[in-house]
């Protein structure tokens, strides 16, 4: 009996070791692919960083109106953000290529599905970044205009608009990632409607006195004859 147990153990060990030995070339290939990708990523990052600095990418981005980007970037530099995104993408690509080297059906399928999913992730990130930038820009615009119109609830209005755009951007990003699309649609509807409803309520009920005072001032000003206004700006 002991001979049989020993034999089984031996066979099992041989099987495991031979399996492991079979995995070794793939593992080495994966390691080499990742290392090569990391090296390539470093070179590309170095070149890209120098190129973006030379063309004044950060300043150009500011000039195009994407001023919020720097606050969301490492080291307050959008160039650094772009460089890191590109270099990590190369590392990820190397990893996926390395997975394919195992030549196993499962890993190959996984690798292909992962590659297929990459565009969705990239699109979702772009949607999210653009959404954040647009939300901040619109919110600032609303805030400035509301203050210039003497609206006491200017900040509330600006915050509401900001979160409406943000919620929309997040919902769109999740939709691209194909994460719980039905739930996301429903949640988006509820959240978006909720924000609008909350804004209406806070303006109509919560800030009733504030708003009525503000509106009274506005109507007093509108009904006052022009002769009472001594200033002429032009």
């Amino acid at each position: 009996m002991w001979d049989q147990v020993g034999q089984t153990l031996k066979e099992s060990t041989v099987r495991v070791v031979s399996r492991l030995a079979g995995l070794l070339p793939g593992t080495v290939a994966l390691l080499i692919a990742v290392l090569l990708a990391a090296f390539l990523a470093m070179v590309v990052a170095f070149v890209l960083r120098r190129f973006l600095r030379r063309i004044g990418f950060d300043e150009q981005l500011d000039a195009w109106g994407f001023t919020g980007m720097s606050q969301w970037s490492p080291g307050n530099s959008p160039s650094e953000l772009v460089t890191r995104v590109v270099s990590w993408s190369i590392v990820l690509l190397g990893f996926v290529l390395g997975l394919g080297a195992f030549d196993a059906t499962l890993t190959s399928q996984m690798a292909f599905r992962l590659v297929d999913y990459v565009p969705n992730v990239v699109t979702a990130i772009v949607v999210l970044v653009v959404g954040v930038v647009v939300a901040r820009y619109i919110a600032r615009n609303v805030l400035i205009e509301a203050v210039n119109m003497n609206l006491q609830y200017a900040r509330l209005l600006s915050l509401g608009v900001k979160w409406m755009v943000m919620v929309m951007a997040i919902a769109m990003a999740l939709d691209h990632l194909q994460i719980g699309s039905g739930i996301v649609h429903l949640a988006f509807g509820i959240l978006f409607g909720g924000i609008v409803f909350a804004l209406s309520l806070s303006v109509a009920l919560g800030s009733k006195e504030l708003v009525s005072r503000s509106l009274e001032r506005e109507s007093d000003r509108a009904s006052a004859p022009d002769t009472e206004e001594p200033f002429r700006h032009l």
Binding site: D62, A63, T67, Y137, I144, E145, V147, N148, F231
Partner: peptide, 21 residues
Amino acid sequence: VRTISREQILRSITPIYLGWL
């Protein structure tokens, strides 16, 4: 230097201008 959008810069001076007035 376009710290923020130029339109926003120009419009945000209004309350300070009223203060000076």
